[in-house]
Design a protein around this nucleic acid. Structure first.
Length: 610
RNA sequence: GGCCCCGUAGUGUAGCGGUCUAACACGCCACCCUGUCACGGUGGAGAUCGGCGGUUCGAAUCCGCUCGGGGUCGCCA
């Protein structure tokens, strides 16, 4: 070994010991006649002192050191005098009096500071990712991610789960996300697809008698990216035989609450996790992944205004819609311009408009007469709404004076989307969500089907193998939109963390669902024949869930962007500025796999000639 | 694929038609400094303002295209 001790572990108890350390020059402080080096290794930082009298040769070396040089030093651990102790450093009680020093490698001046957490352009960070990862915050994030995965493996291993790998080269499927395709050399014109998730494999493993399967699985989707989306990402995938919905939910709640306790100690994590149906979540929050930290709920105000002379309200109700809204605590301080911006946001989200009602003053709404309340309230709809109604609307939303109501009148689908968007917006603006809280919840009973983008046919909300509620079975043929499924999500702080379901394990039932989706038998046979056949050989009832490891790690690291917990992420255009991937390939490589480029692809730099 | 934002020394920013011969901080280089720890002091080097084209007497600044990065909608069963 080039060292016999780690820098970050030195404590006053080691005083007097001779140690050899190796690491990077984190910072150099040259006092002319005395040089301090902060020596950094994976374990942390310790101060090394170079005295010209005590070790002239080492002092010479120290004078030549620069940031990120790699050095080896030998010297004695010395307890610092009280006035020179550095309380900000875990090793601040000691320093190393260097006797010998050796440069193991020199370093160019880094393109951005390694020794401080300053913002740096994302592309530059990725181009020098190995330097970016040297920074303390990133090092910690990567370690945290490791700890998260290790915790999961231990937790599930302790509960008799078996980790099983599934193929990366699989069958392409037309539905769902776009596949990453891999051409076959041996089979001209045929392609593998990289897995979007191990969904079918895990069900087949349960059919295979693996009653408790899990995998930390890499998944690939060729779709446009976001801050919380990468072309390749990692799921905790798991599946169990002979379980019902609550068994899976209990397992996930146990796993995540203990994970948060162990690796997210700086967060407050309320337990048990609230469970609510999709319908309840949509009613109370307008979202299937509400941020429960915000603490605001949507209320149905229709009955208060159904006789209103205000056309906006009356027409919405007459058209089968409702009037819904919520109170923004302290929101009456919103300036006119801010209110206009909210109206604009509501329209962008698809609403015809937005009624805002600002109750000025303070105290209960009832502390003044309805007439006075009306007078002290600002709202563009004021002349259509009398004082009593204002008070009633406010009361229904739990508002006091000083608050502001945001009200939308339309079909539920619209009011939910708009109010959810508005709620997130004002919560962000007003910092209503406590950053020190992890507010998990489990959402159940998702609808089974939704209209596809073109609104021409029904498509599965979760996936094809999700089990509908038996009691909704007759709706499969009559009213598919009302069929509820045994699908569930784990959410946290307004984000979906994972999603799963109890599966259909009988062939006839699967065929019935496929028929509801207008898939005929031969088509189904072609695409899912292996699954349909597997189900004929005694498939046990089963269910599972898949959870986003990247999001989980980001949440526990307090990071917004999953790129901060991925060692080598890709940019928004799914490229890697460091390696240059994806790249053109030699013409021969394409020929080997029987692939020809379109003229457009060639023009944009496709293959290179051999 | 649509919409929006960003691109100025190594890094982060300022400048937003002429006074820019482009400013500031950190970093870098040199010298000084024996107890600092975001050490301090003095001096210095470093950008033709992402690229191309246009408007203008004059462009970092305005316009178009393009490249790169980011956000968002679509998309992501």
């Amino acid at each position: 070994m080039l060292r016999d001790f780690e820098a970050g572990l030195l404590r006053p108890g080691h005083a007097g010991q001779d140690v050899v350390l190796a690491g990077w020059v984190h910072r150099r402080r040259d006092h002319g006649g005395l040089v301090f080096i902060d020596l950094r290794d994976f374990s942390g930082i310790v101060q090394a002192v170079f005295h010209p009298e005590d070790a002239p040769a080492a002092f010479e070396v120290a004078s030549a050191l620069r940031s990120e040089y790699v050095v080896q030093i030998a010297g004695q651990v010395v307890e610092r005098t009280p006035e020179t102790v550095n309380p900000d450093l875990s090793t601040g009680g000691v320093e190393v009096a260097v006797r010998e020093a050796r440069v193991l490698n020199e370093a160019e001046t880094p393109p951005f500071p390694i020794n401080q957490d300053t913002p740096v352009d994302e592309a530059t960070r990725l181009r020098y990712r190995y330097l970016d990862l040297r920074r303390e915050r990133m090092t910690a994030n990567i370690v945290l991610r490791h700890r998260v995965v290790r915790f999961i493996r231990n937790y599930l291993g302790d509960r008799d789960f078996v980790e099983i790998e599934t193929p990366v080269l699989g069958l392409a499927t037309p539905e769902g996300a776009r596949d990453y395709l891999v051409p076959s050399r041996i089979h001209p014109g045929r392609f593998y697809a990289l897995p979007q998730s191990p969904q079918q494999w895990k069900q087949l493993l349960v059919v295979a008698g693996q009653e408790r399967y899990f995998q930390i699985a890499r998944c690939y989707r060729d779709e446009d990216l976001r801050a919380d989306r990468q072309p390749e990402f990692t799921q905790l995938d798991l599946e169990l035989a002979f379980v019902e919905q609550d068994d899976v939910l209990d397992l996930i709640e146990g796993l995540y609450s203990e994970l948060a306790l162990t690796e997210g100690g700086r967060f407050q994590t309320p337990t048990p996790f609230p469970r609510m149906t999709w319908a309840e979540a949509m009613e109370r929050y307008g979202s299937d992944k509400p941020d429960l930290r915000i603490g605001i709920e949507i209320r149905d105000l229709s009955s208060l205004v159904e006789d209103s002379e205000f056309g906006v309200f009356r027409n919405a109700i007459a058209g089968g819609g409702r009037v819904r809204g919520f109170a923004v605590p302290g929101g009456s301080d919103t300036p006119r311009r801010g209110a206009d911006a909210l109206v604009e946001l509501a329209q962008e989200l698809g609403a015809g408009g937005l009624i805002w009602i600002a109750f000025d003053g303070e105290g209960d709404l009832g502390s003044v007469s309805p007439e006075e309340l009306h007078e002290q309230t600002r709202s563009p709809a004021k002349r259509f709404i009398d004082g009593e109604t204002l008070a009633a609307l406010g009361a229904a939303c739990g508002a006091s004076r000083g608050d502001m109501l945001l009200i939308v009148a339309d079909r539920d689908e619209v009011t939910s989307r708009v109010l959810d968007g508005l709620m997130r917006h004002v919560a962000e603006q007003r910092e209503l969500a406590d950053p020190n809280v992890l507010a998990f919840a489990l959402i159940t009973d998702f609808p089974m089907f939704e209209r596809d983008a073109a609104d021409t046919r029904w498509s599965a909300v979760h996936h094809l193998f999700t089990s509908p509620y038996e009691e909704d079975d007759e709706l499969l043929e009559t009213d598919p939109g009302r069929v509820r499924s045994r699908a569930y999500d784990l959410i946290c702080n307004g984000q979906e963390i994972g999603s799963g379901s109890i599966r259909i394990h009988r062939r006839e039932r699967l065929m019935r669902v496929l028929r509801a989706l207008d898939l005929d038998e031969s088509e189904a046979e072609e695409r899912f024949g292996h699954m349909l056949q597997a189900f004929t050989f005694g498939a046990p009832p089963h269910g599972g869930i898949a959870l986003g490891i990247d999001r989980t790690a980001a949440l526990l690291a307090g990071e917004r962007d999953i790129r901060e917990v991925i060692a080598f992420p890709k940019t928004k255009t799914a490229s890697d500025p460091m390696t240059g991937a994806p790249s053109a390939v030699e013409a021969q490589q394409l020929a080997d796999v029987h692939v020809a480029l379109t003229p457009e692809a060639q023009a944009s730099g496709g293959a290179t000639d051999v």
